[in-house]
Design a protein around this nucleic acid. Structure first.
Lengths: 206, 206
DNA sequence: GGATGTGAATGTCTTCACAGCT
DNA sequence: AGCTGTGAAGACATTCACATCC
């Protein structure tokens, strides 16, 4: 397969969202132009993005909503469910744990870890917050696919090194630090400070 | 001023972070190569990024840590403090409210709003969660610079329309939806679902 | 007729490579 | 000698525009 750019993958997620709305609204056909409007892009971009993976539309007509929905889910790997572990049971971890969208889209949090003895043992939904020391073994035993890192910046690299060693190949990092991972591991960062600073820059430059 | 790309601004934030670490560590000179290592980029990229704003280094030597620190803070608009309002006092809003990094970098949350009567009136630090109905007037009265949107997707566009009408020109959106704003308003999205789906894609494509 | 799929053209960002200071 | 600053080259991403098919 050709190399697919990160922006293309991001946009696929957005198209998927809009397709779900359209599907809920009972629409059964949609054009690249309609998808573009909602995704804040152009129809040519939509068609190009999709063309990397196949020809899903009908000329003169557009795309079948249910079919394109299914196709994009397949492309993004969302037709299966993923086992996720959450490391860090602080404020952010807790907010993520109860974030409904995750479960909804097949990302199931199966374990929560923390070092803080006052948090370990707490019941979170049907899970129990477990001690950090149990993490390495548990990741393997439970066959965890992805880890969400929600620990302080100082602790993040250490956690990630262990997570990688335990065989996990996808990490979503909320700690405000640039993590080092082998190129075989997929890493995404959610960096709220960087975003706010971007807004600050925008405000003083117009 | 030339048009500066979003990626350049993002990287400036990262450089700033390392400079702070370096400064805390007592380092007083740093090379583009060292900055690049930590930022996961190349020395040429660092120099190019900085060159859009001026010549801050000394050939043969590198950059003065305290000076570059100050310069980047200036460039990003971080030498002043920004007044931020938080809309949505749910789990995510609450986590953001106590996120220390924000205050630390001059982003001060000055007001919190929610529609839920069981949340309105609650004391959050030295603030009180206020009713959504008070928002429009309060944004103007308090001279709020930026708004963080942490409400459910269905409510987000409505909130943003009012925020824009109240004169706010920078918005950080946590709701999983693509918002429409006038081009005069800066908008950044933190979209955790999109990130997780990107990881899902990465996992099945190697 | 109308919207897709896609090479070609354009635009944007990154990397190279070296002249120019210190 | 060493590292910056920067045009030029190269890689990558987006947009154009049109032949193609329903």
């Amino acid at each position: 397969m050709k190399k697919i750019s990160e922006s293309t993958v991001r946009r696929l997620s957005l198209y998927l969202r809009f397709l779900q709305e359209a599907s809920d609204g009972g629409l059964d056909t949609i054009s690249s132009d309609e998808l573009a409007q909602r995704g804040g892009t152009t129809s040519a971009q939509v068609r190009k993005d999709l063309s990397f993976f196949g020809s899903f539309g009908k000329r003169g007509l557009g795309y079948s909503v249910p079919e394109l929905l299914r196709q994009i889910q397949e492309i993004l790997g969302l037709s299966r469910s993923w086992k996720v572990a959450l490391v860090g049971a602080g404020k952010i971890g807790s907010a993520l744990f109860s974030y409904r969208d995750f479960q909804l889209r097949g990302f199931h949090i199966r374990a929560v870890f923390d070092t803080d003895p006052t948090k370990v043992g707490a019941a979170w939904g049907d899970l129990t917050v477990r001690d950090d020391g149990e993490m390495d073994a548990a990741l393997r035993e439970q066959g965890i696919d992805m880890v969400i890192v929600a620990v302080p910046a100082e602790a993040a690299q250490g956690v990630v090194d262990r997570v990688v060693k335990a065989g996990v190949r996808a990490i979503l990092n909320f700690a405000p630090i640039r993590l080092r991972v082998p190129s075989s591991v997929a890493l995404r960062n959610v960096d709220m400070t960087v975003e706010l600073e971007g807004l600050s820059f925008a405000l003083i430059n117009r």
